[in-house]
């Protein structure tokens, strides 16, 4: 289990600790995937992080990942219905399966200018 795949900066410019989310009960290592989650814009405010690494079970979809994230950061629910979801820098639907070392980006719209 590798801790600290991401070194993150908080929105205020201060160092924010890298987080490793162990949400699922630990099973055998084969059944777990580790993905990198990137937060943008409002998602950064709501989590206080630019990203985390997340362990999910094999067969999880982007939808499952989002549910886990909202369980960990309940305030993320605010943008649940309004975001671009990108898997490895490409648009993805929530039903897509995630693979080990995938990068899931959560991109709510910015409206300022």
């Amino acid at each position: 289990m590798s801790v600290g795949g991401l070194s993150t900066m908080g929105e205020q410019g201060g160092e924010v600790e890298t987080q490793q989310a162990n949400i699922l009960p630990k099973a055998s290592d084969d059944s777990l995937l580790s993905i990198k989650v990137l937060f943008f814009a409002r998602a950064r405010d709501l989590t206080g992080l630019t990203g985390i690494s997340l362990e999910v079970s094999t067969g999880s979809t982007a939808h499952d990942c989002l549910n886990l994230l909202i369980a960990k950061f309940p305030r993320l629910d605010e943008i649940r219905g309004c975001m671009v979801l990108a898997l490895n820098e490409e648009y993805t639907s929530e039903s897509s399966l995630v693979r080990d070392k995938d990068e899931l980006a959560i991109i709510p719209p910015i409206s300022g200018g």
Partner: peptide
């Protein structure tokens, strides 16, 4: 991309 507008709390301004 955004068929449903975000809640007003999510729309911050400069």
């Amino acid at each position: 991309l955004f068929p449903t507008p975000p809640p007003t709390s999510a729309c911050q301004r400069c």
